[in-house]
């Protein structure tokens, strides 16, 4: 390889995160809020919400998260494995006011244990907390369930913007830890697909013109 120009100095470590949650539990709003956070260093106009990317730095290591949204309606449930098969992380979202959506989460968790990557990092978002008037939100049961499966639970609200950064940085930290301990080490960004270089990102289409 000798004579070629050296690659950009900071290749980021890339991870694939799959979003699972019943239809209309607000998983899209949640992730849009995260990706478009006005406080992030580099804001890009979002022209699509199904596939999103987010760059962040954890313990000095640049990380690139590819966020794969999935259709949450029950009728598409069987298609799940196609999306999560080789995912590094799963963010499971349920609506805090709707117990059925929590049951769907437990169903996905069972499947992930069987069919996904053995090392998959899981986190559960108890979403829409701003709709709950009472001061006391009982997430004890959900929290102990999360603990029992090696996941973490966060109470989130896309509207108020709470808990969102926390849940993603928790995921990123755990991902990085696992990658460090794995045989691949940090040098290999993705077992098969090679390194994704930040500066080499294909240009997204130009942001939509606003207020014209």
């Amino acid at each position: 390889m000798g004579s070629k120009p050296p690659p950009p100095p900071q290749p980021s470590v890339s991870f694939k995160l799959v979003l699972l949650g019943d239809g209309r539990v607000g998983k899209t709003s949640l992730v849009l809020r995260y990706v478009n956070d006005v406080f992030s260093d580099k804001q890009e106009a979002t022209v699509q919400a199904s596939y999103l990317t987010k760059r962040l730095v954890v313990e000095g290591v640049p990380i690139m998260l590819s966020i794969w949204d999935t259709a949450g309606q029950e009728k598409f449930h069987a298609l799940g494995p196609i999306y999560y098969r080789d995912a590094d992380a799963a963010l499971l979202v349920y609506d805090i006011t709707d117990n059925d959506t929590f049951l769907r989460v437990t169903k996905w968790v069972k499947e992930l244990k069987q069919m996904a990557n053995k090392d998959i990092v899981m986190a559960i978002a108890a979403n829409k907390s701003d709709l709950v008037r009472s001061k006391h939100i009982d997430t004890n049961e959900a929290a102990s369930y999360a603990e029992s499966i090696g996941a973490t639970l966060f109470v989130t609200s896309a509207k108020a913007g709470t808990g969102i950064d926390d849940i993603f940085s928790d995921i990123a930290k755990r991902l990085l830890e696992k990658r460090k301990n794995s045989s691949d080490g940090l040098s290999l960004a993705h077992p098969k697909k090679g390194i994704l270089i930040v500066d080499d990102e294909p240009e997204k289409e130009p942001p939509p013109k606003c207020c014209s």
């Binding site: 998983k27 899209t28 709003s29 849009l32 919400a49 199904s50 949204d69 999935t70 259709a71």
Partner: peptide, 9 residues
Amino acid sequence: TLSGADDFL
């Protein structure tokens, strides 16, 4: 809110 996979797929 921009639609995600619930509408795309």
